[in-house]
Design a binder for these strands. Structure first.
Lengths: 246, 246
DNA sequence: AATCCCGTTTGATCCAGGTCAAAGTTCGCA
DNA sequence: TGCGAACTTTGACCTGGATCAAACGGGATT
């Protein structure tokens, strides 16, 4: 996805209105948003926000991938969220950021100054409604991940992560249920480890094991082919297909 | 806390309006709520909702303690939330329950039929707003717990749990910052294990260890005294006091 | 007071994943 | 084309917590 023009506002090139916040996309909102919205780019590896910083904007990811992480004083870190295109960032009604947000690839964000956005939200009920819905989705995802972190084995954790990435990848380019797919792994082994509560060595070993067992194939380090998604779901310990099949 | 009268509606005995949803507690809402609100009791150990069930109400806990859990087919279970008095249950806009909700002590819930509640929400923006705020709080709690599950040692996990229970206990009966406190542990060792992603044996061992080291004292199995909360926070691996001190 | 039931503690042993270390791969850059 | 840095893989060993097993309350029932 290319960075949209800064000056042009329309549903087609603005994920936050079209996919993330605006459920019905009404014309008067379009007017209201003009002037409080702006785009911002970050390079791979660059921090977007530090935990505890005052955050004067909310926004959504247009392109690229960012991560939400928490860190302990001794350096142990846990990723608590993965931000893919169309994901929302920010906490309306809160001043401080609760987590570190880091761009893992080059990232373009579509931002709104926080105060005007909150005013807009107060005046347009269905935006507030959509935001509640999104927050509930994130809560579900966080709780699903608690099961992964608390109870799954290393191999199941890896399979669960691949499942999630595959699912999100598929939903961005929907083409019905397929049993085989290929996608790019947007994370380093270390980032995967931080997401899964493992070490990078264990991640590497389990990736090798899944490859040896034919669950996945690797082209280079980052491109993953899954010959049989059903098999991957089994490995993840989910009985369901995780909403992947349609 | 005693079960409130079923027929009497007022701010004083209705946590959902007073503490959970209604930020400003206006008179016209009070009228509107009459007739869609009811109380319901559950005995200790009784399921309140099964994951996947259609849920035709939302509500909040009046008294007692309930847990939110997720289970894998092979029986591994992970608690994803702890419901204490004033906590909200239910997902406006969603039909199915996503988790098992189980009463761990006798529980009284204050319920609202879902459809009328949603209508009410649509017409009273600040209820929607309050609900968003609550959901963001839950999301923060879930993400904080991801760090506990993914990166903390067994001893730190136990200390973190005690910290959380102590904090919530203190907030229900606020009396300023104290360095010493005593509270009831409302969970079995097994429930603690399910919350922490451990086995009950490990929980028991670590409780014994914390006791031996003088971090906590036990009166019976369930009553816990903490001579020095600061010490407990240290054990939990938090640099902050977790918002406990004022 | 004896019995049962349920939750808890404690002990002995095992193993999945962590830790430490070294070598391999990829890619940008001079 | 060769060098260096960052990322990844693999190996050897260790350990925290799981597993298996037994004993220990303590409250309810008879």
């Amino acid at each position: 996805m290319n960075a949209p023009s800064i000056t042009h506002i329309s549903c087609a090139d603005c994920p936050i209105r079209h996919r993330a916040v605006c459920a019905r996309c009404e014309a008067d909102e379009l007017e209201a948003l003009d002037g409080i919205k702006y785009y911002r780019s970050y390079e791979a590896g660059q921090p977007i926000i530090w935990s505890g910083d005052v955050m004067n904007f909310v926004g959504s990811v247009v392109s690229g991938i960012a991560t939400l992480t928490q860190t302990m004083e001794d350096g142990r870190t846990q990723m608590v969220g993965l931000l893919l295109p169309s994901d929302f960032v920010g906490r309306p009604g809160r001043d401080g950021a609760a987590y570190n947000v880091v761009a893992t690839t080059d990232v373009v964000m579509c931002c709104f100054r926080k105060k005007p956005f909150e005013d807009l939200m107060a005046n347009t009920p269905h935006i507030a409604h959509r935001l509640l819905e999104m927050t509930l989705d994130e809560l579900d995802a966080a709780r699903e991940w608690m099961l992964v972190l608390g109870r799954k084995t290393a191999r199941e954790k890896i399979a669960s992560l691949l499942t999630i990435i595959a699912r999100r990848d598929a939903s961005l380019t929907p083409r019905g249920a397929v049993n085989e797919m290929t996608f790019d792994l947007p994370l380093t082994r270390e980032a995967m480890a931080d997401y899964l509560g493992l070490t990078l060595e264990t991640v590497s070993r389990q990736m090798s094991a899944l490859k040896k067992d034919g669950v996945i194939a690797l082209e280079g380090k980052r491109r993953v082919s899954v010959p049989d998604m059903g098999r991957l779901f089994e490995e993840a310990g989910d009985d369901s297909d995780g909403g992947y099949m349609s």
